[in-house]
Structures are given as structure tokens and as C-alpha cells.
Nucleic acid binder design. Structure first.
Lengths: 162, 162
DNA sequence: GCAGATGGGACACCCATGTTGACGTATTAT
DNA sequence: ATAATACGTCAACATGGGTGTCCCATCTGC
């Protein structure tokens, strides 16, 4: 054990840079897919993120959304006010804890989220199909490793919880 | 062929949403890794993106950087002015076309880029190591599929060209 | 050699989205 | 009763995008 083990080849600089760049451009392109639709509605990406996660987990309390998005109350407040004014999101009082406001989409909001998701599905689905199922598994695994542990549970529960 | 072939299972909504979410959180976390260092320098992420790609392709003309980053001349100009003022980036006249300004990092700029890259390498390397080489290949394949074709060549040439 | 296209820089101005800090109120927990 | 929590809201500010306009140097095609 006196000899330090060499980094595997895929941990060398070019391979890391390739990942960094593909992640940057891939992310940019995915998010770019919804810009036209958002603009038609006069909304921005911040609105979409809120819309998206509320769709994923109806009756999500504000505090949970704050933790997911990792932004301040003020920033989220602006966005939620907009979405409520435009009748995309409504909130009701929590029954277990009446201080909480549980967020959910209105039918209008749900329709918009669906439309936006279709654009994402088109991009992501094409990439999945082009790469194949095995690649998709690897894609998930690497990204999971990039996400801090405490968030992994939260993300997983988006699927099971809804 | 009269029967439409069903979508493969990995193209269904939950699998697409999983990719969308992991890509969002993974990207957030990767970029978050350099925020502290950038703040120490009084720079933002926009500065880092310019720094990064200039490091990747020394003597890159401004127009090429504009195409890569997909922002306006005005936005890039602000960033490049900052970087030049702080002696991180220098430019010289192109010899083939003297209208061009070829950008490269100064030694100081190069040292900063290296420091920032180390933070990225730590995150991305940990994710690679956790997922394994096969997963990394899949990760690349899916992301390549997300990137528009004309950009793929440009990204590929970052590796061969430097 | 000149006209038009191109590369680059700069101006003023606006918008979206993030930040901090402070404060208020309802509700829950100790 | 008091402290902590969940939420909302105010003012003020920073960053990093965008637009439109104008300018200069230089290259290219006719």
C-alpha cells in the first residue's frame, strides 16, 4: 500500500472536462426547450421550477419548496404571488399544522405544466432513445453521485410520494 | 407495421421526470462547487464560463466564444472587460484576420481557472468514481443526445483542438 | 479601389431573479 | 406563558441576461 493507486483513466482531466461541458450544454439545451412557451405566458424559468415541483408533489408546503429550490423566501414569494395571481397555483391551509400553506396547481396551472413538460419530454426522450436504456441508467447514476445525499431522498420521494 | 410500437418503458413519464430532476439538481450542485472561490475573487458564474472556455481553447476569437456561450456581445463584453481589468485575460490581434481579438488567459488567469477546475474535478470525479466507468459512458451518451448537433462538433473540438 | 459585410467595442436602458435584513402574525410546541 | 416555527411582506441591492443604437477597423467581392 505504499504505492498510491493511480486514478482510473476516466478520472483524468479530459474526461472530467468532457462531463462538465456536456452537463453545461445539456442542461442549457433542456431548459431552452421551454422558453418559447414560458414567454407566451409572460413567465420565467423561476416560475416554471415552482410549477414543476408543485405538480410533482401536490399539497407541498412552502417550506418544502424552499428547501428543494434552495432560494430565499423573498425570491420564492414573488414567484408564488405571480402564479397565484395568474390562477396557476392555489394554496390551502394545512390541517395538521394550520400555519402551513399547502400548494397545488389549479386545472389551468396543471394544463400549463403539462404543456411545458411535453417540451421537456420531447428533448429528454429523444436523448434517451438515441442513447439507449443502458446509457440512461448510467446517466442517472452519475447524476445521483453529483447530488448531495440529503437531496437524493427528497428527489426519490418525488416519485414515490405523488 | 399497422400496430404502433409501444414506447419503450424508459420513455415513460416517470423516467423522463427522473432525468429532468437529476439534471437540474446535478447541474446546480456542480456549479455550486465553485461559488465560494468565485466570491473570494469578486467574480460571478458568467466570468467563470468565459474563463473556462478561454482556458480550453487559447486564442479563441470573441465571436467563437459568443457562439459557444450563446449570449449577446453586450453581456460578454461586460464580463471580458472585468476579466481583462483584473488581468485574468489578455487579447491580441489575429494575424490572419486583424479584426479579430484572440483571447487567452494570463498566468494569473490560468492559475485561477486551475483552482476553479479542481473544485469541479472533485465533484465530478467523485460522481464518476461512485458510478463507475460504464455509467460515465452512458452519462456522456445521453447528454450528447441533448446537445444540438451543431454544438456537438464544437464541443468535440475543444478536446482535440487544445 | 470602393461598397458592403464582418469583428469588435461601447453607450443607455430595461428585466428577471437572486440576495439581506427587518418586521408582523398566526400557530404550535415546550 | 413563552419560545420557536411557517408564512408573508417591505425596502434595498447585485448579477447577469436582454435590446437598440452607434462607431471604428478591417476584410472581401466586384
Amino acid at each position: 500500500m505504499g504505492v498510491p493507486s493511480a486514478s482510473p483513466l476516466f478520472l483524468r482531466e479530459p474526461e472530467i472536462r468532457r462531463g462538465v461541458e456536456l452537463l453545461y450544454f445539456g442542461y442549457s439545451h433542456m431548459t431552452g426547450a421551454i422558453d418559447k412557451t414560458l414567454e407566451k405566458q409572460g413567465l420565467g424559468r423561476a416560475h416554471h421550477r415552482a410549477l414543476y415541483f408543485i405538480a410533482r408533489q401536490p399539497d407541498m408546503p412552502v417550506s418544502e419548496l424552499l428547501r428543494l429550490l434552495n432560494i430565499t423566501k423573498q425570491s420564492l414569494g414573488r414567484v408564488l404571488t405571480d402564479l397565484a395571481d395568474r390562477n396557476f397555483v392555489e394554496s390551502r391551509q394545512g390541517q395538521r399544522d394550520r400555519r402551513q400553506r399547502l400548494l397545488r396547481l389549479t386545472p389551468t396551472g396543471s394544463a400549463l405544466e403539462t404543456e411545458l413538460f411535453e417540451a421537456l419530454r420531447e428533448k429528454m426522450g429523444a436523448a434517451y432513445a438515441e442513447a439507449g436504456q443502458e446509457s440512461v441508467t448510467g446517466f442517472w447514476r452519475v447524476l445521483e453521485g453529483l447530488v448531495p445525499v440529503h437531496l437524493r431522498d427528497r428527489i426519490a420521494s418525488l416519485n414515490s410520494g405523488s
